[in-house]
Design a protein around this nucleic acid. Structure first.
Lengths: 143, 143
DNA sequence: GCTTGACCCTACAGTAGCTATAGGGTTTTC
DNA sequence: GAAAACCCTATAGCTACTGTAGGGTCAAGC
């Protein structure tokens, strides 16, 4: 299988496949005499796995860890479960942050119901007068 | 005011202030004879405005647009209101995406309630077998 | 046999919003 | 007068790609 076929089968771009190889997520395949990458079924399986993890917004580090765990078929899957729990916690954290943000934004929006001169706009006043918060550290990789 | 004092007053780092200057968000201040940046009250006001916008997860482009609008005090604030509405829409979109993600993750998590050998783990099976989705474009700048 | 177009290759720059580092100079405090 | 605390510029790094430049390869049609 050439790289274009692989990318198509996994619903991603050729550039993304080459990027994953550079990142060490996907093993480097054999090359043809013309130096074209030549993939087998196992590459597609792994790429699909990676893309599915990405569709769930997992970070590359999380995926790398999962792949390592998956490569020891006989050991127990506690690590896998734990990793997923932590990822779910990231998502929950980010949802909570955004929900809080939304209520702040809704409150701000209510300060200017009608069009008026910019100098009287309640939104701009609000943005000028909010107390700057100490920047909180990120607890998730979700932006 | 020196850069360290300004940064402290606006609850951000010195590096961030210099970065905003390079980005054109914050005007370049006068310099002392030792080439130190020397800020006045208007710089602090503007920096606070920017930090408050960032606390609400606005992108630099959105902030730049707001600053331009705010600089025409006599014109009406329709543009400001519209910009905020669009930003609120971004946040709503991202909350919806993450909520959908969460339900997918919860479903996946339910597939492995007990520790078992990795090769039998329902989570790993799920990740291997999900259908790869066509990557959807981003409609928000929120990650 | 030759061209055209679709595919492949490497290497590198760009995205967003910072953060960190190297390698210097200045000012303040003891 | 020395050390700590501050300032300066320039540059690289972070994440997960995307896009570009400048090439090589291959199959089909004339």
């Amino acid at each position: 299988m050439k790289i274009g076929e692989l990318a198509l089968a996994a619903q991603c771009t050729v550039e993304t496949v080459r990027y994953y190889e550079r990142e060490g997520l996907l093993a480097a395949p054999a090359r043809t005499s013309a130096n074209y990458r030549s993939y087998g079924a196992s590459h597609l399986e792994r790429l699909r796995f990676i893309r599915n993890c990405r569709a769930l917004d997992m970070a590359h580090d999380e995926i790398r860890a999962l792949l390592v765990l998956a490569e020891q078929p006989a050991s127990d899957c506690h690590g896998v479960n734990h990793l997923l729990d932590e990822h779910i916690a990231h998502v929950n954290t980010r949802i909570a942050e955004l929900t809080q943000l939304k209520s702040q934004l809704d409150e701000l929006r209510r300060r200017c119901q009608h069009e008026q001169p910019v100098e009287a706009c309640g939104i701009l006043k609000g943005l000028a007068l909010m107390e700057p918060e100490t920047r909180k550290e990120k607890h998730t990789h979700l932006g």
